[in-house]
Amino acid sequence: MSLKAEHGLDTLLEVAGLARSTFFYHQARLSNPDPYAELKAAIAAAFDDNHGRYGHRRIHQVLINAGWSVAKKTVLKLMRALGLTSGFHGNTR
């Protein structure tokens, strides 16, 4: 049984220390579509096309060459969220 079934929303928000507006803001935000969905698909495709060898810098360049307008740090953030790593992690000495 859920807590919301046993207790009122106001009581749960008070215990959690959240404002009512914060609860409804996040509830509405979860129902919005992902603004990065197309970009994530393009990143994953570029990563797969290059057999997982490209890091965020090279993926960024692939996207720029394909006509995307995106920052390197955004590509890095999304690759991390997707769990895409190039397998090369620095100096191998």
Rank of each mutant, 00 (worst) to 15 (best):
D34G: 07
L39E: 08
A28D: 11
L30A: 15
L9P: 03
D48I: 01
N91K: 12
A66F: 04
T22N: 03
G90M: 05
T85P: 00
R58L: 09
L76A: 11
R53C: 12
A28M: 02
L78K: 14
S86F: 08
P35A: 03
I59N: 06
L12N: 01
A71R: 08
A71W: 00
V75I: 01
Y25C: 13
S86M: 11
V15Y: 13
K72H: 02
T74P: 00
L84R: 11
D34C: 05
D48E: 15
A45Q: 08
I59L: 03
L13R: 01
V70I: 10
Q61M: 10
S2F: 10
A81F: 00
N50H: 11
P35V: 13
G87Q: 02
A81I: 03
D48R: 15
V62A: 07
S31D: 05
A41E: 08
R53T: 14
H26V: 07
A19W: 04
F88D: 04
L39Q: 08
A71L: 15
N32K: 15
H56M: 13
K73H: 13
L76G: 14
D49F: 04
E6W: 14
Y36G: 05
I59G: 04
D10S: 15
T22K: 03
L18I: 09
H26F: 14
A71P: 12
P35E: 04
Y36F: 11
L18N: 02
M79A: 01
E6R: 13
H7A: 11
E6I: 13
L30Y: 12
K73F: 02
T85L: 10
Y25E: 09
I43V: 06
A71D: 15
M79P: 04
N32P: 02
Y25I: 01
P35Y: 07
A16I: 07
G90D: 01
L9T: 06
L39I: 15
E14P: 00
A44T: 11
Y36W: 04
L12G: 05
G87V: 00
G52S: 03
K72G: 00
V75S: 00
S2P: 01
L84I: 05
S2N: 11
A16V: 09
A28R: 10
I64A: 10
A37C: 09
A66Q: 14
A42C: 07
G90N: 07
S69I: 14
A45N: 14
D49Y: 08
V75T: 09
A42H: 05
G55E: 06
H26P: 00
K77E: 05
V75N: 08
V70G: 06
R57D: 04
T11Q: 11
R57W: 14
T92Y: 15
H89E: 10
L76R: 12
